[in-house]
Amino acid sequence: MTESDQTGSQPPGLPPTPPPLPPEPADAGPRPVPTNEAEALEIGRQHFPEVGSPGGPAGLFVHEFDLGYLVFASWPPPEDPTAPPADPGGSQVAINKTNGDVTFLPNFPPEAAVELYHRFYRPSEA
């Protein structure tokens, strides 16, 4: 494959950026089904460090969409904004409105995370 055959705009010598991983379902078992944003937030809290704890998020937020609720964190600004992040990456939690399935999604903007959820989510068999 020549460089002209590769997709993306990576600098020469670097491999192309891989596509995002598909959403990952959480463990199986009985799950509470949220009926509002407050209940979704309580379920989501179980999957993040305590708000305000050392290295923990500054806050947790909920974005409701047609199939569920997306719970995501905000993080305090780094002490040195020019340094690379200490813990790059992260994830968000989608909680299904119908059956309570919890799915981990990449740390994308809410609209992109919901789009990924729509593309890959398959209900659990429980």
Rank of each mutant, 00 (worst) to 15 (best):
G59P: 01
H63L: 02
T103C: 06
A58F: 02
A38E: 15
A86F: 08
E111K: 11
G59I: 05
G90A: 04
G89Y: 06
R45N: 01
A112T: 09
R119L: 09
E64Q: 13
P23A: 06
D5K: 14
R122D: 08
V51I: 14
E37G: 10
L41N: 02
S91D: 11
D5M: 14
V51R: 11
Q46M: 11
F48A: 01
D87V: 12
V51C: 10
L70P: 00
V33M: 06
L21Q: 12
F48R: 00
M1A: 14
T35H: 15
I43N: 01
L60F: 09
P76L: 04
E50D: 10
G13C: 08
L60G: 00
S91I: 02
P20S: 12
I43H: 05
P109S: 14
P25Y: 03
T82S: 15
M1R: 13
A126N: 14
E39L: 05
G8W: 04
A38Q: 13
L67R: 15
S74D: 14
V62R: 05
E42H: 06
S124W: 01
F120L: 06
S9C: 11
A40D: 00
P85D: 08
P76H: 06
L70D: 00
S124G: 13
F48M: 01
G52Y: 06
S74I: 10
L41P: 00
R119I: 03
P77D: 12
V71C: 01
E3P: 05
G29L: 08
W75V: 07
S4Y: 08
H47M: 05
L70C: 08
F108Y: 14
P123Y: 04
Y121I: 07
A40S: 02
R119N: 10
F65D: 04
G89A: 04
V71Y: 08
